[in-house]
Simulated assay, not measured.
Amino acid sequence: MNANFANELFRRSIQDYHLTDNVDAPIQNPYLDDEIASLLYQKNWIDTVQWHLEDIIRSPTISPNELVAIKRRIDQSNQDRTDTVELIDTYFDAQFCGITPKPTARMNSETPAWLLDRMSILQLKLYHFREQTERADVSEEHRQKTQQKLIVLHEQEQDLAQCFDELLEDIQNGDRYMKVYRQMKMYNDPTLNPVLYGQS
């Protein structure tokens, strides 16, 4: 497991989504359920669908009913994203459970899975900024601006990949350790959101 492995999976998911470019298209995960590859593919598919939902909801002609429906769908997508990140962290937790951190080991505030979350989103930015540089209906100035941003995104891709690989290496060597804090979201819980439990 390394950054290149993850980024290749993210890129495959994005390419697969754009075969239909339809937010309602069902996921066709090509990996077995018990493989980490399956979770990474699923994670990026969620991100990719949400990326396009975020575009749709900003349409100036969207009806109020559709806007509300998509907003609720985005809320659910955020929950699915968090749940999937936690499943990925569970995988890493199991991978590293036999490693005893050195007395000098430092805790890393960001877990491997949350770093993968950033890497997944970054692959979406790379894909869509690349699209902008290839548009025939825009000015040369537009293409140059998006090309400059694409250069920065590629640099960020390399930096995040290095950070991810170094984090895994450091945890493996006992130089750093991770702690998994499960998300404690309140707004989706009918027993914790006052608007929801106030209505019962």
Rank of each mutant, 00 (worst) to 15 (best):
T191P: 14
M184A: 02
N193S: 10
N193C: 08
N173Y: 00
D175W: 12
T191N: 15
I171H: 07
D170K: 06
T191K: 15
L168C: 05
Y197P: 01
Y177H: 10
M178A: 10
P194Y: 07
M178Q: 05
N173F: 00
M186V: 13
N193Q: 11
K185R: 06
L168R: 02
K179Y: 12
D189T: 11
K185N: 08
M178E: 03
L168T: 03
K185D: 09
K179P: 02
D189S: 13
Y181R: 08
M184W: 04
M184I: 04
Y181A: 10
Y181H: 08
K185I: 10
D170T: 08
T191V: 07
R176L: 13
D170G: 05
R176Q: 13
D189R: 10
G174H: 14
L168S: 03
R176I: 13
N188S: 14
R176F: 13
P194K: 11
Y197Q: 01
L168A: 04
M178N: 02
Y187N: 15
N193V: 03
N173E: 13
I171Q: 10
D189M: 07
P190Q: 05
D189G: 11
L192A: 07
V195M: 14
P190K: 09
N193I: 02
Y197W: 05
M178W: 11
Y187F: 13
M184C: 01
K179F: 13
Y181M: 09
V195G: 14
M184F: 03
Y187S: 15
M186Y: 12
Y181Q: 09
V195L: 15
N193A: 09
L196P: 04
Q172V: 00
P194H: 06
G174F: 14
P194N: 06
R176D: 08
P194C: 05
N173C: 04
I171Y: 11
L196Q: 06
M178V: 12
M178R: 01
M184P: 00
L196T: 05
Y177N: 09
M178K: 03
K179H: 07
Q183K: 00
R182M: 02
K179I: 00
L192Q: 09
D170F: 13
L196I: 12
P190N: 07
P190Y: 06
R182S: 02
G174W: 14
M178C: 12
Q172L: 02
D175M: 11
T191E: 15
D170A: 07
D175E: 12
M186L: 11
Q172I: 00
R176G: 09
